[in-house]
């Protein structure tokens, strides 16, 4: 009976086909081990950040830089964002920070009070490595002179900022406003430059003070900033937010850290991160760079060594 052998053939054939198909199906479950084991640095460097932008954005902005530095100096870096400029002086010690990007005023304070050692600061794409503070109002506010400001609301940034506090104080002194608290109907501290700018723009405050770099960065993404705000006064140039480390930090690590920052613009990855960060490169910074701040504080009559910014 030939039919039987045919059937056998067919069954065999079908079985072969089935196994072929099954073996074809199995190939998708290849392991996806693309992860490269990360070398975990042994030490941890605690790096403080001041709320130049909103605290979350600030952390995000510094994260790539911190990661890059961490790889370069072979040390884990832990970012700690502080909710207030001034906190950085207190927290530097209490939180056991090893380094921080200080603002010009906090930097100056830290140099005086904590004897921190500045290492480097960014140079902006336009070639500057300094900034200045500005006092601004809404164009439609009708405020042009100090005299127009009586009874208005003033938004400072923080008592530990040059732009957001020293400049206004200087301005008050120059214009004979002895007690700003009674002169203005309300004064408050927004905590960030951004908020000071937006508060004036949105009418939450009438007068604001902030630093030019933040102002112009915001102006780039939001045309209303330039269109609706009027800059009244500016401060002298002060050094940009610099990285300073505690003086007793391992000397080798200090040098490594400084070199890593200064040489960032020499490799592609570093350049990329710098570009995103908004800087061209890092330049060496010393205590001397804070001279304008000291001078400015002097003019106002602040003794930085004893200045207590929290007594508000």
């Amino acid at each position: 009976m030939p039919g039987k052998s045919y059937q056998n053939c067919i069954i065999l054939f079908a079985a072969c086909l089935f196994f072929l198909l099954l073996s074809g199906c199995g190939e998708q479950q290849e392991s996806k081990t693309g992860d490269v084991p990360v070398r975990t640095p042994t030490r941890t460097l605690k790096l403080g950040l001041i709320p130049e932008h909103d605290i979350f954005t600030q952390k995000k902005r510094y994260a790539p830089l911190a990661a890059y530095l961490s790889r370069r100096i072979d040390t884990a870096i832990e970012l700690s964002v502080l909710s207030r400029y001034g906190n950085i002086i207190d927290n530097f010690v209490s939180n056991g920070l090893d380094a921080a990007f200080f603002g010009s005023f906090t930097g100056a304070l830290a140099v005086r009070k904590l004897q921190v050692q500045p290492l480097a600061r960014p140079e902006y794409p336009d070639g500057t490595s300094t900034y200045y503070g500005m006092i601004f109002v809404r164009k439609d506010s009708g405020i042009h002179h100090a005299a127009d400001m009586r009874g208005k609301r003033f938004a400072f940034v923080d008592q530990a900022t040059t732009a957001g506090w020293l400049l206004p104080l200087h301005f008050f002194k120059e214009n004979g406003i002895a007690d700003y608290r009674s002169f203005f109907s309300e004064t408050y501290f927004t905590g960030t430059h951004e908020d000071a700018i937006y508060d004036v723009l949105r009418g939450k405050a009438d007068i604001g003070a902030a630093k030019n770099t933040v102002f112009f960065r915001l102006a780039q993404s939001d045309s209303k900033v330039r269109e609706q705000l009027q800059i009244l006064v500016t401060s002298p140039l002060v050094p940009a937010n610099a990285l300073a480390v505690r003086r007793d930090l391992d000397e080798a690590l200090k040098i490594k850290l400084q070199n890593a920052l200064l040489q960032m613009d020499q490799d592609a990855e570093g350049r990329q991160i710098l570009q995103e960060f908004g800087a061209r490169r890092f330049i060496p910074t010393t205590e001397n760079d804070y001279a304008p701040v000291f001078a400015y504080a002097d003019k106002i009559g602040l003794d930085l060594a004893t200045y207590d910014y929290i007594n508000e």
Binding site: I55, F56, T192
Partner: peptide, 13 residues
Amino acid sequence: IKMLSRVYTVRAN
């Protein structure tokens, strides 16, 4: 989130 940051940074009456 912006508002949250603000609450944490602002100092006023």
